[in-house]
Design a protein around this nucleic acid. Structure first.
Length: 425
RNA sequence: GGAGAAAUGGCAGAGUGGACGAAUGCGGCGGUCUUGAAAACCGUUGUCAGGGCGACUGGACCGGGGGUUCGAAUCCCUCUUUCUCCGCCA
């Protein structure tokens, strides 16, 4: 959420930058400013009334003490009207606050000034690419068939137990999954991230804090009996560790990593890229989350990109890094890099990571602040996160790219984790 | 799940109707002393949204919400959380 103060002070700039996200801003910005002006005027009136009541109350107290009961009682009558007005103004103020809040949460984050607008995914900017795309012969199989051939991932069994999109990993498949999780966690810890294991369900406040609510509630599984949401990413619980917090500047940066399963309903995406592991309802992901001083957040973003790049390099996967254009960026992001790996049998680029700087957008919702060492003022921190990495599509690419006629070769970097160097029948 | 107790500033902990945004201690920050440090002493030290160019200024906040009252940290209702005991249990 953008802060209303910033909007008030930088109206033109805000509108211009929102345009880059193809967001029609003029009407809503005007509405926000008008509502804020009303809010402030109401608060001023209310403050005056309350001040009057306070001093009247003091007077009454003094009158009673000095035994002037008659005068005290007549003074009491004066408060009736004031109290009525205070009641009305309080209600009015809370109405304006609610209104303003409802407006502000509909305004997306400002894209970083470097970002070009674009029309969609086709306008994303290729930053770097690496690795070699393998040449597979005609008999190469897509990963879902490899999964069946080697009996390592069972989609039908998951459908029986739960429903579609809940695969069962078996034998070497399970070990590969666990090995990848350990590999990603170990790499993150080596890079200075602290591992945390958060709850897999969050309350409404947390889901709001990172921006999943109110708009994306249909993407999350909801446990109605307790009003909890199953996390769609560990970004939600891990970032919310710092909700309603004021950190000392010396505590920054905060660098956390966490492995969790992620749960996504994927409502509305049926039939689209859903074969095999490409889009499933429960999947494993290792996430990196950072809280930074504003002046450091972009160098942190670059560091995170390098970290993720090293992971795909070590896995020897062909990859490319795209910087998203305004039109393709998420509501909450100021700058996002997507990582894609090439899955050779499907002949498709698969998104395996998204690394974003949210600047102060999440922090404002979360009330995540720090004390500036120079002017001692409390300011919003910057939050960033990225997948490092999401497992299913990595597994898909590993299976497809490394297949031979009778086995699947495990990349060297992973063998100490899996304990085997190839998957066989 | 049953019974009881509690929730106050960074922490500990006082405060049961007005002078309390809140004693005191610890911690933090600044200073005096010291070659330096410690100790001692002095000062300072919450958040939120306002008004004012500013020095400042008035408002709200004692777990959340509601109520009683001229006036609430204090009384009442309700919710949440924590602790203790009992029951059940990985």
């Amino acid at each position: 959420m953008l802060s209303i103060k910033y909007i008030q002070e930088n109206k033109k700039e805000v509108m211009a930058r929102l345009q880059i996200k193809n967001f029609e801003a003029e009407a809503i910005i005007k509405e926000a400013i008008a509502t804020d002006n009303n809010r402030r005027a109401t608060q001023q009136k209310l403050d005056t009334c309350q001040s009057e009541l306070n001093s009247l109350s003091k007077e009454i107290g003094n009158l009673f003490k000095s035994g002037k009961v008659q005068e005290a009682n007549s003074a009491k009558q004066k408060t009736t009207e004031l109290k009525e007005e205070i009641k009305n103004l309080t209600q009015e103020l809370s109405e304006y606050e609610k209104q303003l809040h409802n407006i502000l949460i509909r305004i997306p984050n400002l894209p970083n000034p470097w970002i070009n607008s674009g029309k969609g995914a086709e306008d994303n900017v290729l930053i770097r690419s690496g690795g070699n795309i393998p040449c597979l012969d005609d008999k190469s199989l897509p990963h879902w068939e490899l999964a069946k051939k080697y009996d390592i991932i069972d989609f039908e069994l998951g459908t029986k137990i739960t429903g579609s999109g809940f695969p069962v990993y078996k034998g070497q498949g399970a070990k590969l999954e666990r090995g990848l999780i350990n590999f990603f966690l170990d790499e993150a810890i080596k890079a200075g991230y602290k591992e945390v294991i958060p709850p897999l369900m969050v309350n409404e406040d947390s889901a709001f804090g990172t921006g999943q609510l109110p708009d994306k509630d249909e993407q999350m599984y909801f446990v109605g009996s307790d009003n909890f949401y199953l996390i769609p990413t560990s970004e939600v619980p891990v970032t919310n560790i710092y909700r309603d917090t004021i950190l000392n500047a010396s505590e920054l940066p905060v660098k956390n990593t966490s492995y969790t399963p992620c749960f996504r309903r994927e409502a509305g995406s049926y039939g689209k890229d859903v074969r095999g592991l490409n889009r499933i309802h429960q999947f494993d992901k290792v996430e990196i989350v950072r809280i930074e001083l504003p002046e450091n957040s972009y160098s942190a973003l670059e560091e995170m990109v390098v970290h993720v790049e090293n992971l795909v390099k070590k896995l020897e996967l062909p990859y490319r890094i795209m910087r998203l254009c305004g039109a393709d960026m998420s509501f909450t992001s100021a700058m996002t890099y997507d990582f894609e790996v090439f899955s050779a049998a499907e002949k498709k680029w698969l998104e395996v990571s998204s690394v974003s700087n949210f600047e102060s957008f999440q922090a404002n919702r979360l009330k995540l602040r720090y004390r500036d060492e120079n002017d001692k003022k409390i300011k919003l921190a910057h939050t960033l996160n990225g997948s490092a990495l999401a497992l299913p599509r990595i597994v898909a690419a590993l299976l497809e790219n490394n297949q031979t006629a009778d086995c699947i070769i495990i990349p060297a970097a992973l063998r100490s984790q899996t304990g085997f160097d190839k998957i066989i029948c």
